[in-house]
């Protein structure tokens, strides 16, 4: 379990998060929804352990984030930021392998790298210079990198692991967005990973998330199952924008502007 208890974060006198409590269970996909500037990314940073004053209020598998060494933390959770800028000509395989430095030598790192690349269908990019890839390809390489970090056998034997993804499909086309979320869902199920995603696309959340957290102006507006959260009154309150909710033929709610 990854939990945040009563998180409060201030920056230059502004409250960015107040009294935010969330729980991420292994095996589930939790989506954080909210308007621009609602504090979604800050919440993700707090859960990652990037915000020092918040560390006290975040617990990973029952232990306070403060009590983890950075190396132990890296084996239990991986984080994909919104943007990664890279100015050196590393190959895709080198870049994905960087997250595996802490695993013992006897494990085949190349095997892990190949496995992670295959998950996202980018085995063919292995020997390419990362800088020359398209935005969408780079995003899938970054996904492979963070996933590879958690596929390590050492971690497998240990407690549950968590994947924190900040707008991980923003550069992907329609089909790839869905392919990525299929993989994420599969990882949550087969590896019992807890997954947190920050999302703008409510329809992706509706289809793939197990639990939704609605964040408005730094506060949790509400949280719960997809069915109970994605109703017109809540969404309109969340974004201050009128919407209609239609049923998708396969059952989940589908959100369109009113």
């Amino acid at each position: 379990m990854l939990t945040a208890k009563k998180l409060c974060v201030e920056r230059q006198g502004h409250r960015i998060l107040s009294d935010v409590s969330v729980e991420i269970s292994p095996g589930l996909v939790v989506a954080i929804l909210g308007a621009n500037g609602a504090g979604k990314s800050t919440l993700l940073h707090c859960l990652s352990g990037d915000v020092s004053e918040a560390k006290q209020h975040v617990f990973l598998n029952g232990k306070n984030l403060d009590s983890y060494t950075s190396q132990a933390l890296a084996m239990s959770r991986a984080v994909m930021p919104q943007r990664v800028q890279m100015d050196f000509a590393f190959l895709v395989s080198e870049l994905v392998e960087m997250g595996l430095w802490q695993i013992p030598r006897q494990f085949d790192k190349q095997l892990r790298v190949d496995e992670a690349l295959a998950l996202f269908g980018i085995e063919t990019l292995k020997q390419r210079d990362y800088q020359t890839l398209s935005g969408g390809e780079q995003q899938r390489v970054q996904l492979a990198r963070v996933v590879a970090q958690l596929l390590t056998p050492v971690a497998q034997a240990d407690a549950p692991r968590y994947l924190l993804l900040d707008e991980c499909t923003s550069n992907l086309d329609f089909a790839h967005q869905h392919q990525v979320f299929e993989v994420v869902k599969k990882l949550a199920n087969t590896y019992q990973m807890g997954v947190v995603v920050v999302l703008h696309d409510m329809n992706l959340a509706a289809q793939y998330a197990d639990h939704l957290v609605l964040l408005k102006q730094g506060k949790v507006l509400d949280q719960g199952s997809v069915e109970s959260m994605l109703i017109p009154s809540k969404i309109e309150e969340l974004y201050d924008f009128p919407v209609q909710v239609l049923p998708h033929p396969k059952g989940w709610p589908m959100i369109v502007p009113a």
């Binding site: 990037d50 984080v79 960087m98 802490q102």
Partner: peptide, 8 residues
């Protein structure tokens, strides 16, 4: 941030 997340 990325290198910190990797445990460095």
């Amino acid at each position: 941030a990325v290198s910190a997340h990797m445990g460095f």
